[in-house]
């Protein structure tokens, strides 16, 4: 298992945001994490990436207990995290944004080449000198993803990456993720069910802080509990 959690829980002022979640993601998988708003997805991912301290439970990365490691140490072990709310360096150029992400492991010409490759991959190469704040929203999301993949992480956590993207951009994104996934394990938090069904090998459904179901897209689609708690309530495309 590349990533696993044991009994991971978080209480905010007596409320159980996440309760006793056991998660097992093997190397190479694309795992989707879905659930209605307020189900605790972002809190769970926050505990995995080290942004939020858990109330109890443990996190393991590649067999190592990382529960007590600060966020930056986890990232160095090979996690990458893209923010749900776009969080690029607004005052810096597009290329510098990606360079910052890559500079931890590369310098000089190799850095340059890697940054160019990542920018080309997300289609931002011709905007490399612009300030990130001048990019359109969809392009800022792509920049986030470029900053994620340029780190060559073993686990890439994508927190609602398609939010606010146009139809065409979403299709591009799906291709991109599939392309990256041959060497990177992916944990995808996503509202757009078409993207989830398209990409995920397995899906974990979170509801009220606990795991409601887990299985292949087909199994989840057929799961009565999930339909009752989640899918059945809203439209297929924009559940939640």
């Amino acid at each position: 298992m590349l990533l696993s959690t044991r009994g991971l829980s978080k209480t905010f002022a007596g409320l159980h945001a996440v309760e006793a979640v056991d998660l097992n993601i093997p190397e190479g998988e694309i795992r989707a994490l879905i659930g209605p708003n307020g189900a605790g997805k972002t809190t769970l991912v926050g505990m995995i990436s080290g942004r939020i301290a858990p109330s109890s439970g443990r996190v393991f990365f590649d067999g190592e207990d990382i529960t007590r490691l600060p966020a930056h140490r986890r990232i160095r072990l090979g996690m990458a995290y893209t923010f749900q709310i776009t969080s690029v360096f607004a005052g810096l150029s597009v290329a510098e944004n990606v360079s910052l992400a890559a500079r931890r492991r590369l310098r000089g010409k190799a850095l340059q080449a890697e940054v160019d490759a990542a920018l080309t991959r997300v289609g931002l190469q011709d905007r490399r000198t612009q300030d990130a704040r001048d990019l359109a929203y969809g392009h800022q999301r792509l920049l986030e993803i470029a900053m994620g993949i340029v780190q060559r992480p073993r686990l890439l956590i994508l927190d609602e990456p398609t939010q606010g993207l146009a139809e065409g951009e979403i299709a591009e994104f799906v291709n991109l993720v599939r392309d990256v996934s041959d060497r990177t394990t992916i944990l995808l938090i996503e509202h757009n069910m078409r993207v989830v069904m398209d990409l995920a090998q397995r899906i974990t459904v979170l509801s009220a802080g606990a795991v409601l179901a887990e299985g292949t897209p087909a199994e989840i689609h057929a799961n009565a509990d999930v339909q009752a708690a989640y899918l059945g309530r809203g439209s297929d495309a924009e559940a939640g």
């Binding site: 990436s49 930056h72 140490r73 360096f89 910052l100």
Partner: peptide, 24 residues
Amino acid sequence: SAFGRVLVAIRENEDRVRMLGYDV
């Protein structure tokens, strides 16, 4: 230098720097 550029990045967005694996 690489160090200086991380400082600038901290000025711009500290949280993001941390989530790129730098010890802020």
